[in-house]
Nucleic acid binder design. Sequence first.
RNA 1: GGGGACGUGGCGGAAUCGGUAGACGCAGCGGACUUAAAAUCCGUUGGCCGCGAGGCCGUGAGGGUUCGAGUCCCUCCGUCCCCACCA
Length: 858
Amino acid sequence: MARYNPKEVEPRWRGVWEAGEVFRAAPQSDKPKYYVLEMFPYPSGRLHVGHARNYAMGDVVARFKRARGFNVLHPMGWDAFGLPAENAAAERGVDPAEWTADNIATMREELKRLGLSIDWSREFATCDPAYYGQQQAWFLKLWARGLAYRKEGLVNWDPVDMTVLANEQVIDGRGWRSGAVVERRKLTQWFLRITDYADALLDGLAELDRWPDKVRLMQENWIGRSRGLRLTFALAHQGPRLPPGVGEGVEVYTTRPDTLFGASFVAISPFHPIAEALAAGDEDIAAFVADCRKGGASEVEVEAAEKLGLDTGLKVCHPFDSEQQLPLWIGNFVLMDYGAGAVFGCPAHDQRDLDFARKYGLPVTPVVLPPGEDPASFHVKQEAYVGPGRIFNSAFLNGLDVEAAKSAAIARIEAEHTGQGATVYRLRDWGVSRQRGWGCPIPVIHCHRCGPVGVPEADLPVRLPEGMDFSRPGNALARHPTWKHAPCPSCGGEAERETDTFDTFVDSSWYFARFAAPFAQAPIEKTAADYWLPVDQYIGGVEHAVLHLLYSRFITRALRDEGMLSPAEPFTGLFTQGMVTHETYRRQNGDWVDPTSVEIQSEGTTRRALDRVTGEPLVIGDFEKMSKSKRNVVAPADIADTYGIDAARLFVLSDSPPERDVLWTNTGVEGSWRLINRVWTEFDTDPGEFEPFDIDTLRRATHRTIKAITDAVEGFRFNSAIARLYEFVAVLRSCRAPAGDAPRIEARNEALSALARLISPFAPHLAEECWRRLGEDGLVTLAAWPDYDLLLTREDEVVLPVQINGKRRGEIRAPAGASDDLVRERVLADPDIRLRLEGLAVRKVIVVKDRIVNLVTG
RNA sequence: GGGGACGUGGCGGAAUCGGUAGACGCAGCGGACUUAAAAUCCGUUGGCCGCGAGGCCGUGAGGGUUCGAGUCCCUCCGUCCCCACCA
């Protein structure tokens, strides 16, 4: 009997798996297919236990499905373009390609040590020209179909890093890396027409019934479909003529056409063409517009920013009454890129308009009468009324309810041809240009004569050049001395390459399709993709709930419409897992301390932390997401040496339900390590040690455990599944068969055989070792999942708690499935119960079959 | 400001259909083994009262529905997440 030694066992079995190529997905098969995928990692350099948890979850699913008879695809790749590589290049002078390749090499080894059942033959990185070249190919197809276009748009510009930032890279109005205040700048950018798919993406959510409701709701809100009216307020030709370039009217969008008679002003964005035209001829307006543009678009600034406006002096005509004129304001709160870039203000029924009106002394005319209010006395004071009611003060709309009035107002405007009903989305087209050197080049050449021309397919991939200079901020690709010079593919004349690269979200919006045939000569090999897609189970962090998951859904639909693949949705099942957190420790001076240099002392239930070396007392902080800055990162390798990878896998899966955060503790890992040793002990016991046991009891426990764990894994309740393993091992240690007792040995072997297979998805190395110890020839990894006998999972006799008026007062035994009459008889005959019922009249007896009995007294 | 989720012992959590609240793990306490420690094993561990049998209370707070509520409904408190000047 030898102590289980993971340091020896784990690498040995990984060698066996690798030599046998047991995780290679068959290109086709009689078995049903199952595609399980975890969001691929950015090669940041080191794996931490948060990665381990994510991939362990996918691995449990992959191993389980394989055992259940599926042809499983479980691949791995690298989301390898992005800023950290450029930062490393700037700080240390390394080549981003080399830095990335080194990190991949390190992390690949670390991932392999986790014992994941991955088909490594399909591995690729998004920075491989073979991958990004295919991305360029499909981009050109989308462009040809009009799904990509160039447009001058407002972007977040980091003036220090000299690049566009995505909204999520702007934190409190500052660039996430430079800390510089982000500016709004007009820049010509490439966009993908995701808004063409807004309806499809919204409606498609209804079918994603294996997605968390939360994520579906977030996407729904992000797309933000609203129905309303676009209408034009004609400019009044008053006094002096309209300034040049202003046009004849102001188009606005509203979801409340029912309140048009309550309008008291129209406001345009500082970025509106009319504002720009006016600014050209008026210093005050120019100053105001410039001031507005300076303000950051960040949440905090917006929250704090005052609603500011400037009266242009121009007037517009009310659409229903051209006699009535409204002032035209410029408002700092009006967004240029939503709706029409202009609004009409109805202060009585919109809080923001009300605040604005009060500030600038504009009229407040209520037009919706709340139920029970008197039209003569109803006034809006400091709070706008946004509820339902009857329309009044509104000519032909009077007396209608809000919804009817909306329809009536739209109908009238449409009849007069001054506007029409419209659907507007919060979703904007996806700006994919980035002024970065370490990304996928946008495969376009700008010709002085022909304009932008796609690089011919034969010339793809457009490779990144070597020797880019990352030592200065800005776009290293654009300042490469020779790269951008290329002849026009169309006329052969002098031309320049596009120097922007794609947003890395483009790279990750189709990689799951590439895994079907990762080295094909086309972006997607349709036969392979149609076999494997959609991904049956996708697993990753909830932080990608909108962007990555929405972009992937969009690109999948766009490529489908291009005929490149068949399914509309890329991921039929989605699971968003929680993070791994760790307690934090700080010195008295505030410095963070690495957990490995902390010694925890316990006195009763109080804990103290001391520096392991100096003995200095430390402050114990909260559990927080593992991060370098707080020095609370734990790497799987740190645990592997002491307890083995299986213990780490078991712990990260057992501590919390998968969607919630795990609190990483060393003592917790020790608990998992204990389980591993207990399991191994059961396979390695001396036949001389035995405990007398009832065969039926053990068999029932075995079959009940198989059922419970099967159901738990199907339902992503890995923590509950592992709890059942603990219980089962406790049963096994009290059921040891004496030598020569064939029936008991058989029952025990049945139990051990099941245990090895049940624990295999969680602790695969241990399971193999146990399987071999059982004398089985093949790999437990390739063994079929154990079946259970439903009869054995049920009890013959059940214990029924007996309640009197809902309080538990005793229990009786009854055969399983006993009739209500029999149960009632037994309860009323039970001496304990009779004693308690003394002096009480039983008015009603409620029997819930095989569960509970409740006696109601009068 | 809008939307959503959650709240159960000292801690992580279980109870998936409205039916024995606290499975399983961690920490704690007591014991066995040991010269001793570690490891391992056994027992115990929601609170209060009681020598005991047992009783009472208990799932953030308050109400409601029900024979029966951690679970359903309403109000409130707290925590977390997402979006945010979206017209």
